[in-house]
Simulated assay, not measured.
Amino acid sequence: MRKIHVIGIGAGDPDQLTLQAVKALRSTDVFFLLDKGEVKSELTGLRRDMLDAHLPAGSYRVVAARDPERDRAADGASYAPAVEDWRSARAEIYARLIAEELDEDGTGAFLVWGDPALYDSTLSILEEVLARGAVAFTYDVVPGISSVSALVARHRTSLSRVARPVQITTGRRLAEGFPEGVDDVVVMLDAQQAFRRYAGDGESGESGVGGQDMDIYWGAYIGTPDEILVSGPIAEAGPRIERLRAEARERKGWIMDTYLLRRNPGDA
Rank of each mutant, 00 (worst) to 15 (best):
R172G: 04
D190Q: 07
S160M: 08
A131K: 15
L25D: 01
S78C: 06
S160L: 12
G58D: 06
G208S: 11
G210A: 02
R251N: 02
D215N: 08
P239C: 14
F178A: 03
A91V: 06
D267T: 14
R196M: 06
D226M: 11
R72W: 06
L126I: 08
G76C: 13
R249Q: 13
A131F: 03
A73V: 02
F110I: 13
V83I: 12
V152W: 07
V30S: 06
E250C: 07
V62F: 08
R90I: 06
A99E: 15
R262Q: 10
H155M: 12
D75W: 06
F178H: 06
I4G: 03
D13L: 13
L130T: 04
G108T: 04
A248S: 13
G181K: 03
G223R: 09
V62S: 11
A91N: 07
D267Y: 12
T170G: 10
D67C: 15
A82Y: 07
A150N: 03
V112K: 14
L118I: 15
V30P: 04
W254A: 02
V230D: 00
A21S: 06
N264R: 15
T18A: 13
L130I: 05
L174A: 02
V141M: 06
I228V: 15
E100M: 06
G210P: 00
I9A: 01
A74Y: 09
Q16S: 15
Q192G: 07
T44Q: 12
G114C: 13
P265R: 13
I98P: 01
D120N: 14
I98A: 02
R48G: 05
R251Q: 09
V135I: 07
R172I: 03
A82K: 10
A64N: 04
V152L: 08
D105V: 14
R251A: 07
Y94H: 12
L34R: 14
G266E: 02
E127D: 11
R263I: 04
P233I: 11
E84N: 14
V142R: 00
E242I: 05
D257I: 12
I98F: 05
I9E: 00
Q212D: 12
A220K: 01
S207G: 04
K40I: 02
D140R: 07
V152K: 01
I9Y: 01
L261V: 10
R156K: 13
A11S: 15
V230P: 02
S78M: 04
E42H: 10
E176W: 01
E42M: 11
A99T: 03
E84P: 03
A237E: 03
E250T: 13
W113D: 00
P81D: 12
D201S: 10
D257R: 13
S160V: 12
R48F: 07
T258H: 02
Q167C: 09
F32D: 00
D267K: 15
T170C: 02
I145E: 00
Y259M: 09
S149T: 11
S160N: 14
V141R: 07
P14W: 14
E42W: 12
S59M: 10
S146L: 09
D49A: 12
G177Y: 07
G202P: 05
G106T: 08
I145F: 02
T122H: 09
G210Q: 00
A24Q: 05
I4P: 01
P56M: 08
